[in-house]
Design a protein around this nucleic acid. Structure first.
Lengths: 235, 235
DNA sequence: ACCGGAAAATTTGTAATACAAATTTGTTGA
DNA sequence: TCAACAAATTTGTATTACAAATTTTCCGGT
C-alpha cells in the first residue's frame, strides 16, 4: 500500500525540486546520467526515466553527446497540444483573432482594477521604450511584450493571466511580423508607441470604455500591418 | 541534418496519433511493451521512452504487472497551474468573467463560419434537451456543455477551441451553480433552454451581431442566478 | 602565438538480456 | 461454487555493451 511509488518518480520529483528551488538555473548543465545514477544510487535506466518525464514537461532538453540542460522559462504547452506550425499563416490569423477578443477586454478590466504600482510599472516600460528608441528591434519585442503583460497583470484575473501566459510565445510571433524591419520601421514603431501611450492614459484615468476603445484601435492598426505582411508572405 | 529525431520520439508521435484518431479509446489497454517493440521494430527501451512521454502528458497510465491503459479525457492542467480552489467564490467569479468575454465572441464567429453539419449538431443537442426535459439534472449539465461546445467548435479557431477545452471542467462548476436544484429549478431550465434556442437561431441565420447579443443576454441572466447563489454561499 | 582540424574523451541514445515485483489468469482442492 | 495457491504475464529496474553526437584535447602548420 505504501511502496507503490516508482524509483524514477522519486528521482524526477527530487530533480524537480532542485530545479524549482533554483539549485539548477535555466541554462545550467545537469550532471551526466552516470553521475546522477551514482549520486542517487540507482541504475541509469531509472535516471533516464526520470529525465524523460522532465523532458516531456519541457523543463530540460538533452542532446546526444552534449548533455542535459535546464530549459528557459517555457510555459507554453499550447503549441504542442495544438498542432500549430510556428510560421503558418492560418495560425497567426487565429491567434490574432484571439488577441482582438481578449486584449480590449483586458484593457477594460485593467482600467477598473489597476493598482498604482501596476500603473507605474506600465509607465516604466513605456519610458524605457522612449529613451532607448535607438536600440535594436530585439529590445522592442521584449518591451512590447512587457507592456501587454503589465496590462494583463492589472486585470487581477488569474484565468486571464494564465491564458495570456500560455499564448505568450505565439504572441511574440505576431509581434515579430507586425514589427518586421522594413523601410517604414521607425514610423511603425512610433505609431505603436503612441497607441500604447493612449491605452496607458486611459488606464491611468480609470476609464475602462476608453481603454477598451484604444486597445481596439491599436489592434486594428496592428491587423493592417499584419495583413499587409501576410499578403507578401503567402505565394 | 535530417535524422536528428530520436526513435522514441517517432514512436510516441505514432502512438499519439493512434490515440487521437480514436484507434485506442479511453480505458483501452495498450499492447504490451514487447508487442509494441516487435510491431515497430525497435527495442523495448525505445518503446518505454515513448510511453514515458505519454505518461508524463497524462495520456496513459501503467501498472506494473497490469499493463498500460489509455487515460480518460483529463485535459485541464489549468487548475493545477493556477492554484484555484475548486469551489472558491473568487475563482468562480474570475472564470465567469472570462466566459463573458469569450462566449459572445465565439457565438459571433460561429455565426460567420458554422457548417451545416455543425448547425445540425447544435440542433440535435437542443432537441434532446427538449424531449428529455423530465430527466435528471445530470443530463442537463452534459447537454448544456455539449451545446456550448458545439458553438465553440463552429468558430473554427483552434486557439479558441483549445482555450475552452482547458476551461471545460472549471466551466462545469459555474453551470452546476447556475443550475443548482431549488424551487425555481424548472423555470431556470426553461429560460436557459430558450436562451440557447435564440443563440442557435442567430447562428442559423448567420447573423453574427445578433448571436453575440443573444449570448450576452444569456450570460447576463446566468450571472444573475450566479450572484444570487453566491450571496447565500459566502457566510 | 594562433588557427584549423583531426583524434580522443565524454555523454546521450539504443539494444539485448536478465531478474524483480506486481498483476492477471488459470488451476486445484475442499 | 469458491477460495487459495500456482503459473503466466507484464511492467519496473539493473547490467552491460555499443552507436552516435558532441565536446575537449592536442598537434601540426603557418
Amino acid at each position: 500500500m505504501s511502496k507503490k511509488e516508482k524509483i524514477s518518480q522519486i528521482i524526477s520529483r527530487e530533480l524537480l525540486q532542485l530545479i524549482e528551488s533554483g539549485h539548477y538555473l535555466p541554462g545550467d548543465k545537469l550532471p551526466t546520467e552516470m553521475e546522477l545514477s551514482k549520486q542517487f544510487g540507482v541504475s541509469r535506466i531509472s535516471v533516464r526515466e526520470a529525465l524523460s518525464v522532465l523532458r516531456a514537461s519541457g523543463l530540460i532538453t538533452s542532446r546526444q553527446g552534449g548533455g542535459s540542460y535546464i530549459e528557459e522559462n517555457t510555459q507554453s504547452q499550447i503549441l504542442r497540444s495544438i498542432h500549430m506550425k510556428s510560421d503558418d499563416v492560418e495560425s497567426i490569423r487565429h491567434l490574432f483573432e484571439m488577441r482582438k477578443i481578449l486584449e480590449p477586454e483586458a484593457a477594460y478590466l485593467a482600467a477598473t482594477r489597476r493598482t498604482t504600482e501596476q500603473l507605474s510599472s506600465m509607465k516604466h516600460v513605456l519610458d524605457k521604450l522612449e529613451y532607448g528608441s535607438l536600440n535594436a528591434e530585439q529590445n522592442h519585442y521584449t518591451n512590447d511584450i512587457a507592456f501587454h503583460r503589465a496590462v494583463i497583470l492589472a486585470t487581477h484575473n488569474p484565468v486571464m493571466i494564465h491564458m495570456m501566459e500560455n499564448l505568450a510565445d505565439l504572441y511574440e510571433r505576431t509581434l515579430k511580423v507586425t514589427l518586421e524591419p522594413n523601410k517604414e520601421l521607425k514610423q511603425k514603431r512610433e505609431s505603436v508607441y503612441q497607441e500604447h501611450c493612449r491605452i496607458y492614459e486611459a488606464i491611468e484615468l480609470e476609464e475602462p470604455e476608453l481603454a477598451k476603445v484604444q486597445s481596439t484601435i491599436h489592434l486594428r492598426n496592428a491587423e493592417k500591418k499584419l495583413s499587409l505582411f501576410l499578403q507578401n508572405y503567402e505565394i
